[in-house]
């Protein structure tokens, strides 16, 4: 007979522990009850908010902005990364610029983008796309540069043209690293979008929801929005991981 499988239940143990500690904190009134609602109140707010409430609409808005900015970043950064990575000399010459802007906190460029695009949708999307594109670019270029030399030689020896080598080998060789870039890129895009929704004149989105609830002292709503944002970040990462497993099943083998 199969033994009871503890491993499957380990993640739930953590969640259960977290909720128990939370209940205890509320029960013992460790924190002012106004600041820390009970898990029950919070999940009620989360449920009603997501099921047809305002929170659901804000959630979708943030999803839309994050996906759109990641998409824009990917469309720009993947071809550019392949182009730069295909010639190591070329990449080395722009490496410092890429690394510099990659290390610059995206929030620091908000004022600049506000001047260019004004207060509105464009600024949020473009700052998030800017941050994500540098992360994706860097990963794609490295994926291409680290392509197995033997594999490139093998294609060449079979008579593949430069274009075929690029399409049939380099592109696929860089795919695992490209997915790493996309996953990091979408995470960063979410962070930037949520911050933008809080502070640069937004009427919707999860960032706006968290900020608004806090201003109005609707604590269950605020916690619910934070959990929704957390769930979104987790789900995006998971979705990209699943796509990755499907498309680069061969990676590292």
């Amino acid at each position: 007979m199969k033994r009871f499988n503890f491993h499957m239940f380990m993640p739930f143990a953590g969640v259960a522990g977290f909720i128990v500690v939370w209940y205890l904190a509320v029960w013992a009134q460790v924190v002012d009850p106004v600041l820390l609602p009970s898990p029950g109140q919070t999940f009620h707010a989360l449920w009603t908010g997501m099921a047809g409430g305002q929170l659901g609409a804000d959630f979708l808005k943030t999803v839309e902005r994050t996906i759109l900015s990641t998409l824009i970043a990917a469309v720009i950064a993947i071809p550019l990364g392949i182009f730069l990575g295909a010639s190591e000399k070329l990449y080395r010459s722009v490496e410092f610029v890429i690394d510099f802007f990659r290390s610059t906190p995206a929030s620091a460029v908000f004022p600049l983008f506000l001047v260019i695009f004004g207060v509105g949708e464009k600024t949020k999307i473009s700052v998030a796309a800017f941050g994500a594109s540098l992360v994706i670019l860097f990963n794609v270029a490295y994926g291409v540069m680290n392509a197995r030399k033997t594999r490139l030689l093998a294609a060449k020896v079979m008579g593949a043209s430069r274009w075929r080598v690029l399409r049939d080998v380099l592109l696929l060789e860089s795919l695992p690293q490209t997915f790493v870039g996309l996953r990091n890129g979408v995470s960063l895009a979410l962070v930037i979008v949520v911050v933008a929704e809080m502070f640069i004149g937004s009427a919707d989105g999860l960032g706006h929801r968290v900020f608004d609830a806090q201003q109005l002292f609707q604590m269950p709503d605020m916690y619910a929005a934070i959990f929704a944002a957390g769930a979104l970040g987790y789900a995006l990462n998971l979705i990209f991981l699943l796509i990755e497993k499907r498309f680069v099943h061969w990676a590292g083998k």
């Binding site: 197995r148 033997t150 594999r151 030689l153 093998a154 049939d168 080998v169 696929l172 795919l175 680069v248 061969w250 083998k253």
Partner: peptide
Amino acid sequence: VFQNYREALFPW
């Protein structure tokens, strides 16, 4: 035919 078949074949 390369020595290193792992790196010479296309794993995809």
